[in-house]
Amino acid sequence: MSDHAATIEAIAKPEKAARKPTPRHRRGYLFRLVVSIVALVFALFPIIWIVSAAFNPSSNMANQSLVPPNASLANFEELLNNPLHPFWLWMWNSVKIATITSVLSVFITALTAYAFSRFRFRGRQPLLVTILLIQVFPNLLTMVALFLFLRQIGEYFPSFGLNSHGGLILVYLGAQMGINIWLMKGYFDSIPRDIDESAAVDGATHWQTFWKLIFPLVRPVLAVVGVLVFVGTFNEFILANVLLRSTEQFTLMVGLYLFVTENFQQQWGVFAAGAIIGAVPTVVIYLLLQDYIVSGLTVGAVKG
């Protein structure tokens, strides 16, 4: 190819202006249109179908049609008022657990990332690499150990044992810590050290420098990590399903799963209403932060 490079450069002119519809373009356009329609049907049909089910006055799966006749909010009323499934409580549990996990996680990781970024001490490199390596062991793999661990802790401190939100939050805190420390450290590194140095000259302690100067500067990355942890925790199902036992302790995802295991056909509409409400927080966050998340994708975050 390199042999031809000069010739090619001489001949090939940038074709940026060639946007006039030619027969070839028209065929291409038609092709894209057809593919887009097929892809959109595949991607959106389940979503449209669940929305339609939610507004269908009959909750039964067999009676559903794409456009519900006499659309009503009956399923939502049933969902929110039936004491058999405390939907608001589940929602509240999820929001509570995700918020606490997210705030604690951001705070703990920010402190650690700051230290890794600003101090030079012996054992720094091995420690950083260890933190990354430990995370190679996915915490889902240790779920048996976590289950037994919480069962044991629960014997002494029930509010951190099995079936407790305290225990679940602790487990979630450990889950992503290593990766997040790395993510934040990278961002901290990009803040010029001159700031620290001039603060030190002015007599500021490390804590004052961190809290008053650095913390406000790194807000964007704190927000991104916070949101990622929040969404990840809010959507987590497996560990919550293993570690929570009683209905009133359930998170939203575990609660929604309950609909599926009991009489799914009759509860389809009610489930649909719950699914829509449950999906709203994350969908809104994703749409608002699309660009952030897309750039975060290439860092290696895979969705759960």
Binding site: A39, L40, A43, L44, P46, I47, W49, I50, A53, M61, F234, N235, F237, M253, L256, Y257, F259, V260, F264, Q265, W268, F271, A272, A275, G278, A279, T282, V283, Y286, L287, Q290, K303, G304
Partner: peptide
């Protein structure tokens, strides 16, 4: 943006919707 929607929905909810559709 529309095609990204399945990714934005909590995974477990997406799976359960399919479980219903395939019932």
């Amino acid at each position: 943006a529309l095609l990204i929607l399945p990714y934005a929905i909590p995974g477990i909810i997406g799976i359960l919707i399919w479980r219903g559709m395939l019932n």
